[in-house]
Write a protein that binds this DNA or RNA. Structure first.
Length: 598
RNA sequence: GGAGCUGUGGUGUAGUGGUUAACAUAUUGCCCUGUCAAGGCAAAGAUCGCGGGUUCGAAACCCGUCAGCUCCGCCA
């Protein structure tokens, strides 16, 4: 080893020891006769001091050194002189008095600051990702990610789970996301698909008798990217036999609490995790993955609004369109009348963007009885206002926002306004972590384009026992055994109890527009396997990238992935994807069709 | 497929029709033996993403295009 100690570990108890360090020049302070270098490695930063009189050769090397030079430093650890202790550094009580410096490698001037917390344009960071990764924040993120994964492995191992690898080259699935395809050279004209998740394989492992399986699995989906979505990502994939819904939920809840507390050093806002139904989530928060760090729930006031003198509300109530109120606590008190009109105009634009026709509001003054302003105020009688305020828990200084339309639009507007208001009212503490289960999802949602039901999770999800009969009579009402885990407005996990009965499975296919023959074609191996003694089983998958992102309060999934893709799915460091060589195409039996001109 | 935002020395920003394109920082040189975002002095560094147009004149206005980001569609 070229180092005896790490830069980050030196403490007063090391004083007097001769050490050899190796790392990068983080900062250099040249005082003439004495040069200070903050030397950085993965474990931290320590100050090394070079004195011209004591170590002339080392001083010459320190004089030549520049930012990001790689140095090997020999010297003696000593307590810093009184008054020069640096409380900002973990190693700030000590320094290394240098006897020898060897420049292991020089560095060009880095294209951006590694030693300052300045926002750098994303494409520059990505082009020089290997430098970006040197920044302390990125190293912290990668270390946290490692610890989370390690903790999960140990936790599940201790509970009897086996980590089993499943193929990356597998079969295309017509369901769900678009597949990445891989041509088979040995079988001209045929293709593997990269797994969207090991869903089928883990179920087959249950058939295989493993009972408790997990995998830190890479998954691939050829869909457009988002701030929380990359085309390749990592899942904790797990499956258990002989379990019911609560067993899986309890295991994962225990795991998530332990990870949050023992790895991330935070405490979940709610223990145990609250459970809300899918319907309740949408009615209150407009989302099936609500941010539970703050309340801001929408309240249905259709009955009151129907009695108001506002024609639109009367008509909507008549047509069965809900009228909901969102209470922005204290928002009116923060603004002048002019500001309010401007801000409400912006909110209305936001609501229109989600399909609403408008956004009525009402601002409450210093008391609930006085100074009620805003366009919606005049439509409600004094008694109706009192009833309204009581219903939504209004307080002086609040603004009440009225949303009314078909349910889907109301949900979208509520979700959008919630997230926005939480931001402007500072309701979402970035350091807080609020998990919550969402359960009782519908089995299917209606696909109007294809005129069929689509599975809301996947086709192997078991209906709730009491809803099995609904498959024949009213499939849209049937609820599945699905459970999703939401955290801070992100979906961080989802799973279900699976169908283990072939007859029930075969009932699902026609509902989702698949003929039995087609199903046999695509899932014959599954159906066949299901004839050989399948244990009741269920499991869950959790997006590791997203989970780590939330635990670190990072706003973007790229911050927790070493080499992520840009929004157009490219890697601007390595410059890919690129066209294939003609020879490669020939071997793969692929012909490229030029993109047609517009 | 669509909408929006952004693109100015290495980096971060200012500059809304006429400027020597400004500032900070980084960089280079010199000075400096207790600094820690060290300091002082000096220097170098930008055809304002690219192409076209409007104009006497464009970093700025218009059109197109490319890239990055955010969002909708898409995706659990």
């Amino acid at each position: 080893m070229l180092k005896t100690h790490t830069c980050g570990e030196l403490r007063p108890e090391h004083a007097g020891q001769s050490v050899t360090l190796a790392g990068w020049v983080f900062r250099r302070r040249d005082q003439g006769g004495v040069i200070f270098i903050d030397l950085r490695d993965r474990w931290g930063i320590v100050q090394v001091v070079v004195n011209q009189e004591n170590a002339p050769d080392a001083h010459k090397a320190a004089d030549d050194a520049r930012s990001e030079y790689v140095l090997m430093v020999k010297g003696v650890v000593r307590l810093r002189p009184e008054g020069t202790v640096n409380d900002e550094l973990e190693t700030g009580a000590v320094e290394v008095g240098v006897e020898h410096i060897e420049i292991l490698n020089e560095s060009k001037v880095p294209p951006f600051y590694l030693n300052q917390d300045v926002e750098i344009e994303e494409r520059v960071r990505m082009k020089y990702r290997y430098l970006d990764l040197r920044r302390p924040k990125m190293q912290r993120n990668m270390i946290m990610r490692h610890k989370v994964v390690k903790f999960i492995r140990d936790y599940l191992d201790e509970r009897g789970f086996l980590e089993i690898e499943t193929p990356i080259l597998f079969k295309t699935t017509p369901e769900g996301a678009r597949d990445f395809l891989v041509p088979s050279r040995l079988n001209p004209g045929t293709f593997y698909a990269l797994p969207q998740s090991p869903q089928q394989l883990k179920q087959l492992l249950m058939v295989g008798g493993y009972e408790r399986y997990f995998q830190i699995a890479r998954c691939f989906r050829d869909e457009d990217l988002r701030g929380d979505r990359q085309p390749e990502f990592t899942q904790l994939d797990m499956e258990m036999s002989f379990v019911q819904r609560d067993d899986v939920m309890a295991l994962i809840e225990g795991l998530m609490i332990a990870v949050t507390e023992q790895v991330a050093g935070k405490t979940p806002k709610y223990k145990p995790f609250p459970r809300i139904t899918y319907t309740e989530a949408l009615e209150k928060y407009g989302s099936d993955k609500p941010d539970l760090r703050y309340d801001l729930a929408a309240v249905d006031i259709s009955d009151i609004a129907a009695r108001s003198s506002f024609i639109v509300f009367q008509q909507n109530a008549e047509a069965g369109k809900p009228i909901k109120v969102m209470r922005a606590p204290g928002y009116a008190a923060k603004m002048s009348g002019t500001e309010m009109r401007k801000v409400m105009g912006e909110l209305e634009t936001m609501a229109r963007g989600e399909g609403a026709k408008g956004l009525a509001y009402l601002a409450i003054g210093d008391t609930l009885e006085s100074e009620v302003k805003g366009p919606a105020a005049k439509y409600f009688s004094v008694d109706q206002k009192a009833e309204l305020f009581e219903r939504v828990g209004a307080e002086p200084g609040d603004i009440l926002l009225f949303v009314s339309d078909v349910r889907e639009v109301v949900y979208n507007v509520v979700d959008k306004l919630r997230r926005h208001l939480a931001g402007v009212l500072n309701l979402a503490d970035p350091e807080e972590v609020a998990f919550g289960w969402v359960i009782d999802f519908p089995m299917f949602y209606w696909n109007e384009d294809e005129k069929r039901w689509d599975p809301s999770q996947h086709m192997f999800t078991m209906p709730l026992p009491e809803d099995v009969a609904l498959l024949d009579t009213d499939p849209g009402k049937a609820r599945g055994s699905q459970y999703d885990l939401a955290c801070n407005g992100y979906e961080v996990a989802g799973g279900s109890i699976r169908i283990h009965d072939r007859a029930l499975q075969e009932k699902i296919f026609p509902l989702i527009g698949q003929t039995l023959e087609h199903a046999r074609d695509q899932f014959g191996h599954m159906l066949e396997a299901f004839e050989y003694g399948v244990p009741p089983h269920g499991g869950l998958a959790s997006g590791i990238d997203r989970l780590v992102m939330v635990l670190l309060a990072e706003p973007n999934i790229r911050e927790v992935i070493a080499f992520p893709k840009t929004q157009t799915g490219s890697d601007i460091m390595a410059n890919c994807p690129t066209p294939a060589e003609p020879r490669q195409l020939e071997e793969a039996h692929i012909r490229v069709v030029p993109v047609p001109e517009k």
